[in-house]
């Protein structure tokens, strides 16, 4: 199939940037979206043009690095990561618009590459259980009901790609933050620091400049790992009860 790509090009963070149009031909339906981009980039490089920069690494939908906003949706028309999107999802002759994640907290680095270190800083603010290496009790001394463990796992599946922020009309990071808070709030291991964690992570989320949650549900609908909105409700609960009952004045 033949396609027209409308791609955001931006030299660096300071550059204003703009769209540029490219034609790609003989695209096979079995190609992944990124392989289609590889082929285009190969062509650009041969012509001596700067290839389109985009983040990608594992290409199996788990590292969370790929991040393209395709035809108005993060990761494109399927509810997967960009790397797992295949060209059979597109029609011959289609025009595809590709943009970077848009958020003040995710500044564009170059073309489609954005800086998501805000997520790392949120985790650093409290997204962990404070245990040192060694001296931990035997793993089976902490029985956890299967239902709870499964629920915590489902929250822990988040790959930190930022599609939730990209999809949200407010560029809110609530789904990301709530997934981590939920995982640890559900597990007995997370109880000790439960209140402090919710308070700190929300404070960091706000400091990074993410928007608020309007409960549109766009994040859940676009999340490649299907992280549920119930996490956001839990975060609201955790945060409020922490604020009302913690010792931090």
């Amino acid at each position: 199939m033949n396609l027209t790509l409308n791609v955001w090009r931006q030299k660096n963070t300071q550059d204003k940037g703009g769209f540029k149009s490219y034609q790609v031909s003989d695209v096979s339906a079995d190609m992944s979206f990124l392989e289609m981009m590889d082929v285009l980039n190969e062509k650009l490089e041969v012509q001596g043009e700067d290839p389109i920069h985009f983040d990608h690494d594992c290409r199996e939908g788990i590292c969370g690095m790929c991040s393209m906003y395709i035809n108005g949706k993060p990761h494109g028309p399927q509810q997967t990561t960009t790397c797992q999107l295949h060209m059979r999802s597109f029609k011959d002759g289609e025009t595809i618009t590709i943009e970077p994640w848009r958020a003040a907290a995710f500044p564009v680095v170059k073309d489609l590459v954005v800086d998501r270190s805000a997520f790392d800083r949120i985790i650093q603010s409290g997204g962990y259980v404070s245990v040192n290496t060694g001296g931990t009790p035997d793993a089976n001394e902490i029985p956890i009901p299967k239902k709870i463990a499964d629920e915590a796992f489902e929250s822990a599946e988040c790959i930190g790609c930022g599609a939730c922020v990209a999809a949200c009309k407010n560029a809110s990071a609530m789904l990301f933050v709530s997934a981590k808070v939920s995982q640890l709030a559900l597990l007995p291991q997370g109880q000790v620091e439960r209140k402090e964690r919710a308070e700190k992570m929300v404070a960091q989320m706000d400091a990074e400049g993410f928007g608020s949650c309007t409960n549109t549900g766009a994040c859940e609908a676009e999340c490649p790992k299907g992280i549920s909105l119930t996490n956001i409700a839990r975060l609201n609960r955790e945060y409020l009860s922490a604020k009302l009952t913690s010792e931090n004045v």
């Binding site: 009790p137 035997d138 029985p143 956890i144 009901p145 463990a149 499964d150 915590a152 796992f153």
Partner: peptide, 20 residues
């Protein structure tokens, strides 16, 4: 020791109905 360490960190390993 690795398993103990990871569980203490909150790694959600698969569990049986008895919780182990």
């Amino acid at each position: 020791n690795i398993i103990d360490q990871c569980v203490a960190q909150g790694v959600p390993f698969a569990r049986e109905y008895g919780g182990l």
